[in-house]
Write a protein that binds this DNA or RNA. Structure first.
Lengths: 255, 255
DNA sequence: CGACATTTTGATGAAGATCAAACTGGGTGG
DNA sequence: CCACCCAGTTTGATCTTCATCAAAATGTCG
């Protein structure tokens, strides 16, 4: 049996779309009762696979990525606790990208049948799931902007803001710090930069007292400054409904 | 009254997901009976707007874009005939990007109520609509790869392949040529390049006898070569079901 | 024709890639 | 417990791609 806390991030995230009843939450917990542990750097799904089930990240970091002909890879999105992997299952015939873990990951596995019945019985859940795919789409677009129009420094600042904000949403930040279990090479795949350059930018950020990144812990010493540099506008994350995290954090800092 | 041909691209596109009955097609045509003409470079929707209706592009080119603080804009997706603008309507509270026309556009307008009833009465249509949003998401991810990991030349080749392929899908290519009503400046917004550099790459492509682009007509003289250069793999467009256009075009060329 | 947008060309500069090598630290096996 | 190894990080030097600035050429439309 899985403890309630593991599904907590998922519920917490979905409630940014709509409030869920006790019954809906229980249904979610039941659906997530089957799960598996994955080592870092293993594939959850591979490009081209016909997909059979929905996975939900309960703990750890994963990413969506596409491999290039030359062997380089582009990470096209991060998956954090509470994020769903392949809702497309029901509709698309094959995966257009791979999903791999970055850190150790705990992921629930929902079979297609269970997923279908969940959506049929709880329209509000269906709506919340759809909402989460739309948010992901919005994030993908923001990544186009990020990679296309921002300097390395801005780009990295933006990624850090996004990660922090998203983790804050599901209650996984402590003060101004959060997990960041990525190597610099992995960061470079996500930012479309060389690993060497990622290193240099990191050094500069540290030198400017903007962040510390050590033992896979990222702390943002001046979130406001970072957001200004990045041109980070959290609206693309569509967290309108409830307590805006960036606001809350901004407050913490002024306090 | 609008002629059937205007909705043809939409139907043709959706049928890449699932076959539609006569009744479903008629319902679509009815829903699209209200429409408007838009001049080039006018906004269909603006970032931040609360959206009230779904629009469908029947003729012409439009794009999704985000404006940067410095005034530059990043086009984050193209909208071609048959594409829908704001299905997110029902779920998200505001638009996270703007939609603007590039050429003169004919767009249908479907009110929220009509859209809702359409989705309620015709589950297969609902499924096809969802499919089309997932394809858009896949395209957005491909754009991240494009802007992140490809050289200017490859990037432009890739965009041309995508446009040609998508237009082919809805029957809007003639042999190896199609419309491309974008200025070089607009291309540069989509490719995250400077307008000057777009010009130089275009010149080079012409010099290599790969394309002609004149009077807003693009013709691909060697589609296969272009695809190789771009590393273009049409699978991300999810056109599996039916007649694969790239295949058909490849055939034309060998003939 | 004349105003204006767009395309084309040239010259220079900057951001970041690439190559190479040294350094760090944790883990393993002898 | 030490020597070693390996993955990851850091630093330096050089080279490429593309941005930027500026100006000329071309085209379009009233």
């Amino acid at each position: 049996m899985i403890s309630q806390s593991n599904v907590a991030s998922l519920i917490r995230k979905l409630e940014h779309c709509t409030v869920l009843s006790q019954e809906e939450k229980r249904a979610l917990e039941n659906a997530c009762s089957s799960f598996r542990h994955l080592a870092p750097r293993t594939n959850l799904v591979s490009e081209g696979d016909p997909v059979q089930r929905v996975s939900i990240i309960l703990e750890g970091f994963a990413c969506r990525y596409r491999l290039q002909a030359d062997g380089r890879r582009q990470v096209v999105g991060l998956l954090l606790p509470g994020d769903m992997c392949d809702i497309c299952v029901c509709i698309l015939k094959h995966m257009d990208h791979s999903i791999g873990t970055l850190s150790p990951v705990l992921a629930s596995q929902i079979s297609r049948e269970v997923a279908d019945s969940l959506l049929d019985h709880y329209p509000r859940l269906a709506r919340a799931f759809w909402w989460s795919t739309l948010v992901e789409e919005s994030i993908a677009r923001e990544w186009v902007v990020n990679v296309g129009h921002r300097t390395a420094f801005e780009r990295m600042a933006h990624l850090f803001c996004e990660i922090f904000e998203r983790l804050h949403t599901v209650g996984l930040t402590r003060g101004d710090t959060c997990d960041l279990p990525l190597t610099q090479a992995e960061l470079s795949d996500a930012l479309a930069l060389s690993a060497v350059h990622v290193n240099r930018v990191l050094m500069e950020m540290r030198h400017n007292q903007l962040i510390t990144l050590r033992n896979q812990q990222l702390t943002l010493h001046d979130y406001q400054a970072l957001r200004n540099i990045a041109g980070f506008d959290a609206r693309y994350l569509h967290l309108d409904g409830t307590h805006g995290p960036s606001f809350a954090v901004a407050q913490e800092h002024t306090a």
